[in-house]
Design a protein around this nucleic acid. Sequence first.
DNA 1: CCGTGCAAGATTGTATACAATCACCAAACG
DNA 2: CGTTTGGTGATTGTATACAATCTTGCACGG
Lengths: 232, 232
Amino acid sequence: MGSERRRGKAKSGDQLSRGELVHLKLLDAIRAGEFRPGERIREAEIAKWLGVSRTPVREAFRRLQADGLLVFEPWRGVVVAELDQQQLIELYAMRKVLEGTAAGLAAQHAAESQIATLAELIDTADTAADAAERAELNRHFHQNIYAAAHNRYLLKALNALRDSMALLPSTTYALTGRHEIAQGEHRDIVGAIARRDPKAAEAAARHHIAEAEKARLKMIIEMNRGNKDTTP
Amino acid sequence: MGSERRRGKAKSGDQLSRGELVHLKLLDAIRAGEFRPGERIREAEIAKWLGVSRTPVREAFRRLQADGLLVFEPWRGVVVAELDQQQLIELYAMRKVLEGTAAGLAAQHAAESQIATLAELIDTADTAADAAERAELNRHFHQNIYAAAHNRYLLKALNALRDSMALLPSTTYALTGRHEIAQGEHRDIVGAIARRDPKAAEAAARHHIAEAEKARLKMIIEMNRGNKDTTP
DNA sequence: CCGTGCAAGATTGTATACAATCACCAAACG
DNA sequence: CGTTTGGTGATTGTATACAATCTTGCACGG
């Protein structure tokens, strides 16, 4: 409460427009599960929550719609997108392609310093405390591979997929044993990149995503066993 | 100039919001070369041109920014994005990956009717009058392959690339002989899809894009020969 | 003659007011 | 009792007003 009328002033400090702020906040909220898929969201509601007007909220909505996280129903507002089984398959199929491509390109174009950073990130992940932190480091790791690929269109597409992943509940790192296996897969990818072997890097990345998909499906099955809330 | 105050009424006929209309109009304008890369665009200017207010213009700007066609410079407005040599390479590299993937998936998932449509589109292209019409049919052809792949994330990424292509001047179909060669490549792709051979379909599509890239580079060289306006 | 500082204009970022449309609910009719 | 139709409220689509910032031009001093 208390917007305090410092309208254009707060921005100068962080050089972040309100539209971008709303975009980030909504992404975080979706990722944190505060807005669940299928839930309807009203512009005024978000505007009041974040203490801004509807205009920047609309801008954020449009971006999220373009990325597929929100679905517009004309004159009914937006609802958080729901991923059905089919979309999940398509999402992971696309990830296999793009992550594989990114790893292959990274093997060709990565600077040595970038490869070193990747190795460090893997080591750091072993010291992570909980699943949330491991998931965060995992995102960071993949983000660095994207950067090493040096292709901005690929980067954009992969970021869009990453955002779509926010619609999935929890992370596969909550599964026992997933972290250790993923670490090994990560090392395989970085090893291939370091050897400058694009084919092997691509294969390793595709394998990694395929395993992540398996873990995700297993997780969904277990969740459905716990509460019979099927997600059709 | 008499906006005639039929504000919310015109929309009911075509169920197209003003924001989407502006988006399409701007895409067309960029594709037609009315707005050239590097050119600065002002919101009010577009709003007056299309007879709408700045609000839907802003929405369209945001979408075009998200797709990379416009670049935002805070408090300086937007400029039409410029593709340098490096971005051109990255763009075609990504197209090779995604078009190849789409063709491969189409070989697996396309319905027979979709394959028939693809064959028909190729035949129709032979009757096209000029380069513009051939380019249009070419877009249509590729769009149908995307649809046959049945992966909405792939579709979205490919559409984003297609829009980015609007930043390139003219089309490679203006080159003499390009149409005939492209037709042959198209038949190779559809042939592989019809044989349900994903590997061959992917290879054919990648080859097709590689040839298109060659044609594009050749075109740029010829243009630079004509006027020494280098696009750095 | 050139550089610096200031002021005015231009342009975007944001907020709010208004209009159009749709969903929901109640009531009447078959 | 079920179905349909009309009204009312809620919500989005659009327009416009205002605030903050940047750019540009000009004047003044060195």
